[in-house]
């Protein structure tokens, strides 16, 4: 019953964006395989991620959804045993091509992690870290503008504007996570990847972040991994269901939750397993 009510709400939200006649493909994967040593973690994944929409990856633990997310900005490069093959494109450009600098890729595809991880520096320093290393600003004034813009974008400005020089680690959990989002948008990325951004937050902080995600999609393409199916239903327009390293089904969120084509998807969203 509870589920059904969420569904109808979602339909209303999802309808407006999916009715848009045209959408652009921002990122795409074709035949993506990932091996962790001997383990075959992702098996031939094909997916398109639409620009200015929220795409949610759902699925039981260990299904490969976070692994795939981390392929999208090559965060898996830091793990030695991880081997990625197949085609991954950002704006029709192969992101695993030798000509691509991973540093620039990550500036275009930002990431927010499961556990809020602000640097043990001031709030101000946390935001300007990215712009400084990419040389996005010259002079203090531009940096100040970026800080204000990013914090406003993350809905944190009013809460912290009087204490920008306090440590970022002194904020509450939800504030820290929004600080991390602000830090990510400070480098003006095109895509923001979010790996279970609300799993460590209480319901009120979660609601804040979800609202924020909904606002951010007008400027950014967002991919979010979540364990919480209601959350996927609330914030996303497209949903992809992963199971045992296979992308089982990917469709409009409303379709996935009301009319799944695959038995496994049906089983997962109705809570039979996972």
């Amino acid at each position: 019953m509870e589920m059904a009510r969420t569904m109808t709400e979602t339909k209303a939200v999802g309808a407006s964006s999916t009715e848009a006649p045209k959408f652009k493909i921002k990122m795409s994967g074709r035949g993506v395989n990932v091996h962790y040593g001997a383990k075959h973690a992702l098996k031939t994944v094909d997916i398109d991620i639409r620009e200015n929409q929220v795409t949610a990856f759902i699925g039981p633990s260990g299904c490969g959804k976070s692994t795939f997310l981390r392929c999208l900005n090559r965060m898996n490069d830091t793990i030695d045993a991880c081997k990625v093959s197949g085609d991954l494109k950002l704006d029709k450009q192969d992101i695993y091509d030798k000509s691509i600098d991973v540093v620039q890729l990550r500036a275009r595809v930002g990431m927010v992690f499961q556990k809020a991880n602000p640097f043990p520096k001031s709030i101000y320093e946390n935001i300007v870290y990215g712009p400084k290393i990419h040389g996005l600003a010259t002079g203090k004034q531009e940096l100040d503008e970026i800080v204000e813009k990013s914090l406003r974008g993350a809905g944190l400005w009013n809460e912290v504007k009087d204490r920008l020089l306090d440590s970022g680690t002194g904020l509450s959990g939800g504030q820290q996570q929004r600080l991390c989002i602000a830090r990510a948008i400070a480098v003006s990325p095109e895509v923001i990847l979010m790996d279970e951004p609300c799993s460590a937050l209480d319901p009120i902080a979660t609601a804040h972040v979800e609202e924020l995600i909904d606002e951010l999609k007008s400027k950014y393409t967002i991919v979010i991994v979540t364990h919480n199916m209601q959350q996927a239903a609330r914030v996303s327009q497209r949903t992809a269901f992963f199971h045992l390293g296979v992308l089982v089904e990917e469709d409009d969120t409303a379709n996935i939750f009301t009319n799944p084509r695959d038995e496994r998807t049906q089983g997962y969203i109705t809570g039979r397993y996972g």
Binding site: T78, Y129, I133
Partner: peptide, 9 residues
């Protein structure tokens, strides 16, 4: 990870 995620070397 946070630093790499922001495109730091």
């Amino acid at each position: 990870d946070a630093s790499y995620g922001l495109g730091a070397t």
